[in-house]
């Protein structure tokens, strides 16, 4: 620790260090730490009208948390959200792995540039707008249905909005970049010669991926999955715009709570979501046997 201090002071000077600590500290404390602590506090308090706050009924309680487990509907939605987020993560991984591999190891020069641009440009457009676009595509008279009708695959327009399908598609599309880039990064650092050596020794492509590429890319896979899961579980726009009554998302309950001024309930549920994400992160690290340090690189 001491070495860290001395090195830092040597690099930035005493004033520099003070400046950094001040600005970062202020940002961190007032925009991250304090709001979280206030929310945490809210979550443990019951919902009371303004005049009763500070009175005898204002005690710390676990009621807001227990409600989640005792309300079957909320429980179901919570579990459904977890499951759907896992599905989104898996679909994203399946789609992005070949893309990342192609970018990292196969594509050359100009082509690589074009594909990267093709992936990045959509992200210059607001996420909401992109999700709206999916609404248009998946509508009964939308482009997808028109195409399928035209080539004669179906006789009547399909209702893509029923169930979870549309939400999952929309989310996967929205979060592709978050999966591709960690994967691409990890794969890029793999020495191409190792793949060539494995092929030269007789290995099929399947084995090359199983024994060489994937073990090397594990940190990237872990990061990608974590990002996509957290984004999916915490997403509010996609479920609201693309969802149906049977695909209610946990975030929508939180939102409703805050809308109806039940901040306490909302805060509690939000905390549960945060803890869920933390559990997922550590679970991923364990599964892929990856340390935090490796993730950072």
């Amino acid at each position: 620790m001491r070495r860290l201090w001395q090195d830092a002071i040597r690099s930035f000077g005493g004033v520099g260090i003070a400046f950094i600590l001040l600005t970062v500290g202020t940002w961190f404390i007032f925009m991250i730490l304090l709001p979280q602590l206030i929310m945490l506090d809210f979550s443990f308090r019951p919902l009371l009208p303004l005049r009763k706050i500070g009175g005898p009924e204002d005690v710390y309680t676990l009621k807001n948390y227990i409600v989640l487990f005792t309300t079957p509907l909320h429980r179901a939605i919570f579990l459904k959200t977890i499951w759907s987020s896992i599905v989104v993560t898996t679909v994203a991984l399946t789609i992005c792995y070949p893309i990342a591999f192609y970018l990292a190891k196969v594509a050359r020069g100009a082509r690589l540039g074009w594909i990267l641009m093709g992936l990045i440009i959509p992200y210059w457009i607001n996420e909401l707008l992109r999700i709206f676009a999916w609404q248009l595509i998946l509508a009964d008279s939308g482009i997808l249905n028109q195409l399928l009708l035209f080539i004669g695959l179906i006789a009547e327009p399909l209702n893509f909005r029923a169930g979870n399908g549309a939400v999952i598609m929309g989310m996967t599309y929205a979060y592709i970049l978050f999966m591709v880039f960690p994967l691409y990064n990890a794969m890029e650092s793999l020495d191409r010669n190792q793949i060539d050596a494995a092929r030269d020794l007789g290995s099929s492509w399947l084995r090359v991926h199983r024994r060489i590429v994937i073990p090397h890319a594990k940190p990237g896979i872990a990061v990608g999955c974590i990002m996509v899961f957290m984004l999916a579980a915490g997403s509010i726009a996609a479920p609201q715009l693309l969802g149906s009554p049977s695909s209610f998302w946990f975030t929508e309950i939180i939102y409703t709570n805050f809308e109806t001024a039940n901040w306490n309930q909302g805060a509690a549920y939000a905390m549960v979501l945060a803890v869920l994400c933390l559990i997922f992160i550590f679970g991923m690290l364990k599964i892929f046997r990856v340390g935090l340090k490796e993730l950072a690189s």
């Binding site: 020495d191 010669n193 060539d196 050596a197 030269d200 007789g202 290995s203």
Partner: peptide
Amino acid sequence: PNKRPTAMIFQNLALF
């Protein structure tokens, strides 16, 4: 390369 009766030693060895 995986079907030819050859094996190659790479310049940077490419050990796994």
